[in-house]
Simulated assay, not measured.
Amino acid sequence: VLDFAHGSQMLRRVQASLGEYDLSPVRKGSRNELDQLDLEKPELGEWRYIILDPKGITLRSRPTVDKSFKLNTRVDEGEIVNVVERRASASTVFLRLETDTGQLGWAFDAQPGPGACLRMQEAPIETGSWYYQVSSDRSCCPRSRCSSSDACKIGRCLYKGCLVKVEQRIEVGLATFLLLADGGYICANKDGLTPFVEGPLAVHVVNNSTGVISTEGGVSLLKAPTTEPWAQTRMVLLAESRICVCRR
């Protein structure tokens, strides 16, 4: 701009404190005010939710769909998160999350507007101790979260006949995920119709039970309670060997 033009002063300097002016940027198309008006009273408590969005979600600093309030905290698909506050609006429910690392942020359970989809869902979790046996002909590697993504594979693959100990069962729609005592999740039945495992099985713990191998040729040891070829080993218990039984 020009402060002088054709011999006339067009602009002049003024002294003013910054407090007299609102210098915050204007967000074009912001829905913050609308979101705040739609919000109902907060519901405080503790709930467990699972992330369903295949792309994961990015937390926000406040309960809004405005992308300009996004934080640098992401939660991946299949993660189980702790929700400490819920605030319903006309089109979605805003959830205040607390991650395992103690970080807080806001997300919403359903994408509002055209193409609405469910991004998060409350996940009933049952804690206990059960034994399951892999029944599928297809092997499966445990995952670090409740997901079928190959990107979160951990540990060794489980083959047909493997016996696994389970500490948690999580219902996600028609699917059931199992948290293994050795770490990692497996999907017990992906669509509610095709089981990957059988169980829970009746496994009895036996204390101070001993025996003697009576078979003349001895007994071959197995990696798991199954006759599948992968479970065969070269180890043999000879006839008349004394053994101690811990489970049956």
Rank of each mutant, 00 (worst) to 15 (best):
A5K: 14
H6N: 14
Q9S: 10
Q9H: 09
M10K: 14
R12G: 10
R12Y: 14
V14E: 12
A16M: 13
G19T: 12
E20T: 13
L23G: 07
N32L: 15
E33R: 13
D35T: 10
D35G: 10
L37S: 15
L37F: 11
D38W: 15
P42F: 07
G45F: 02
R48V: 15
R48C: 12
I50D: 02
I51W: 05
D53P: 03
G56T: 01
R62K: 15
K67H: 10
S68D: 10
L71I: 04
T73M: 04
V83M: 04
R86W: 02
R87E: 04
S89W: 08
A90C: 04
S91E: 14
L97G: 06
E98A: 09
T101W: 08
Q103S: 09
Q103H: 13
F108Q: 06
F108Y: 15
F108N: 12
P112E: 02
E122G: 08
A123G: 04
P124W: 01
T127I: 12
T127Q: 13
Q133G: 02
Q133S: 08
S135C: 12
S136V: 05
D137A: 10
D137K: 12
S139D: 10
R145H: 05
C146G: 03
S148L: 13
S148H: 11
G155R: 01
C157I: 04
L158T: 02
K160N: 09
C162W: 00
C162I: 00
E167R: 15
E167S: 14
V172L: 07
A175E: 02
A181C: 05
A181P: 01
A188Y: 07
N189V: 13
N189L: 01
G192R: 02
L193N: 08
T194C: 06
P195R: 03
P195F: 04
G199Y: 07
V203C: 06
H204W: 11
N207H: 15
V212D: 02
I213R: 01
S214V: 13
T215V: 11
T215G: 01
G217A: 01
L221P: 01
K223E: 10
P225R: 03
T226W: 01
E228M: 14
W230N: 08
Q232F: 06
M235D: 05
A239S: 15
R242W: 07
I243S: 00
C246V: 15
R247P: 01
R247K: 11
